[in-house]
Structure formats: structure tokens, C-alpha cells
Computed example of a mutant assay.
Amino acid sequence: MSASTIFGSSFIVIIVLLIILFFTFVPVGLWITAFFSGVKVKVSTLIGMRLRRVRPGRIVNPMIKATKAGLNLDIESLEGHYLAGGNVNTLVDALIAAERANIPLQFERGAAIDLAGRNVLEAVQVSVNPKVIETPNISAVAQDGIEVVVKAKVTVRANIDRLVGGAGEETIIARVGEGIVTTVGSSTTYKAVLENPDSISRVVLEKGLDSGTAFEILSIDIADVDVARNIGARLQTDQAEADKRIAEAKASERRAMALAREQEMKAEVEAMRAKVVEAESEVPLAMAEALKNGNLGVMDYYKLKNINSDTDMRDSISKATNKNKKNKEQ
């Protein structure tokens, strides 16, 4: 094989490799589609996207969609939004939907909403077709102490101008719940709430609860009102039970003090009895001393004995009489 033949074969292989590399690196098919769709994009731009690690299809296809919808967008702006971490396809769909619904939404505004973490397409859809947010069961107590459980449905519409930095659905639900609790709490009786539930929605709606949120509240409808517990009666019962326990504690304290006083009195009586016994034990000695010294005569001694005998007899009769009475009573 001659050198010219080898060189020719090598040249052909190199050409084939270059062609394969070109078609692999340059999305020619995508460029042709864009060209026939009326989107003017340079091949160098597509190569630059490859070098910047941007998938050209993620930029060119939304650009084709926007062009066909009549939007005038810049492909560099779309690529910049993609590099910033945004969703180009969703942004273009939102811009098209806003254009069809006559909603003033600029590309910069939509890109800011998308980069803020909100679904810009859903925001446009909610702006066109209002969304219903259902609150959980909200417990409130009227002035008569009856608990009322309320569930409401809040119809909201997205506010495009406040989507960036505006509060979400959780804030709407919390504010509506607070307004319901306040309104029911100001009612004199739970019957007034049951008879006129639309007064709750009217009062709550007048509070301007959508201030600083990403939504505009269109209406607040009371879906359900249920009567629950009698909180006032329960509180009174708990208070009465607490008062009862306090009274029982004070009575126990007084009982303990009375028992202690009784024990003290018994101790005093026993001490007095001991003194009496001690004194009685000294009487015979004193009488003997008196007889010995002549201070007490024999007749006086016998008189004392007779008096003691009479006293003992009367005590015996009295005890027998009391015993008979007790037996008859039994």
C-alpha cells in the first residue's frame, strides 16, 4: 500500500470524525427547527450554550413556543434565567397565559417570581381562576360559655404584584381563624352565631386580612357551624371542685387542731387526777398526825368515816341507776 493511499484514508477518517464531532456538539436539528419556526438563533450561540453547559433544548424550545405565541423575548435573557436556576419552560408558559388573560406580567417580574420559589404559572392560573382555601375546624367560645366549632372556605385570587415577599396560604388561614375566634367571642350567645353565620364572614372580611399576602381575598363563606362543649359550665364545675377541696383541707386542719387540743386537755386531766390521788394518799397520814397531836378527836374521825361511807353509797346508787337507764334505752 502506497503512502498516498494511507494518507488519503487517514484524511477521510479525520473528516468523518470531525463531522461526527460537529453534529454531536452542535445541535443542528434544533437549529433547523428554530429556523423554520421563525426563531433566529446563531450556530455560535448554540455552541456557546454547550460550552456554558446549558442544554440548548431547554432554551430554544421555550423560545419557539414564545415566538409562536407572539411574545418578543430575548434568547440571552432566557439563558440567563436558566443559569440563575429558574424554570424557563414554566416561565414562558406563564407569560403566554398572562398575555392571553390580559394580565400585565413582564418578563423581569415573572423571572423574579420564579426565582423566588413560587410557581409563576400557578400564580397566573389562580389570578384568572380564583382558588378556594378550606380552613380546619376552628374552635371559638361565645360569651355564654358555649363552644362553637366553625369551618370556613376562603376564596382567594393571586396578586401578581405581591407574589415576591408576600405571605402564603398559611398566613391567610391563620388570620381567618383569628378573625373567627374574635367574632364568635364577641357574640353574647352561641344562638346568635347559629342564626346569622354570615355575620362572621362579613366581619372577618372587613378586617383586611389579605394585607401583606400574595393573595386577594374575594369572599369568606362559613361552610359549617357545630355546637360543642359548655365551657362555662365546665369552668364553674372545676371551680366548685377546687373550692370543695380547699374546704375539705381546711376542715381537716381544724379537725387535727381539735384532736390535738383534746389530747392536751386529757393530759391536763390526767395530771390533775394524779395530783388528787397524791393528795388523797396524804390524807391518812395527815389524820394520823392530827390524832397524834390532838388536833382531831375520835368522834371527829368517826364522823368523817360516816361521811365517806355515805358518799360511797350514794355513788354506788347513782352508778346503778345510770346503768339501768342505759339498759332500758337499749
Rank of each mutant, 00 (worst) to 15 (best):
I246E: 12
K244Q: 14
Q236P: 01
V227H: 01
G232E: 07
D243P: 00
A242F: 06
G212A: 02
K191V: 05
V269H: 03
A271Q: 05
R245I: 10
G212Y: 04
N230S: 04
D226I: 05
M265A: 10
S281Q: 15
D224A: 10
I200H: 06
K244N: 13
F215L: 04
V277I: 15
F215P: 00
D243T: 11
V227D: 00
L259V: 13
S199L: 14
A214D: 08
K207C: 03
E253A: 05
E195C: 02
A258V: 06
E248A: 14
D226N: 03
S211L: 13
Y190N: 03
R234M: 10
E280T: 11
A251R: 12
S201A: 15
Q236A: 15
E216W: 09
A279F: 12
Q236D: 14
D198Y: 11
E282C: 14
L194C: 00
S281G: 14
G208H: 06
E262L: 10
A279K: 10
M265L: 13
E268C: 05
E278P: 07
A260K: 12
A274M: 05
I246C: 06
T213R: 00
V227E: 01
L218R: 05
E248C: 05
K244V: 11
S219R: 12
E282R: 15
K275I: 04
A271S: 09
S281T: 03
A214E: 08
S252C: 04
K207F: 05
T237C: 01
L259M: 08
G232H: 08
R273E: 09
D224R: 12
V269L: 13
A242P: 04
L235M: 12
V193Y: 06
V277C: 12
S219P: 03
E206Q: 12
M272F: 07
N230I: 03
T189I: 01
E264V: 03
A228H: 01
I200N: 03
A228Y: 00
R261C: 07
D238I: 08
R229G: 05
E262A: 10
T213W: 02
R234S: 10
S281W: 07
R255M: 07
V276L: 13
G212P: 06
E282Q: 15
E268H: 04
I246G: 01
S211R: 11
E270F: 14
S211V: 14
A233C: 01
A267Q: 15
L205K: 14
E195V: 06
A214T: 09
E206V: 02
M257V: 07
A242L: 12
A256D: 14
A242R: 15
I246L: 13
Q239C: 08
L209T: 08
T189C: 01
A242M: 08
I220K: 07
A249I: 05
A256N: 14
R229K: 10
L209W: 03
A271M: 05
K191C: 00
A223S: 11
R229F: 04
D224V: 00
R255A: 13
A214W: 03
M257K: 10
R254M: 05
F215M: 13
R255T: 10
E264P: 02
D226V: 04
D198N: 14
S211T: 13
V283C: 08
A242H: 13
S252I: 06
A247I: 09
E278L: 11
I220R: 13
R273D: 13
R245M: 11
E206P: 02
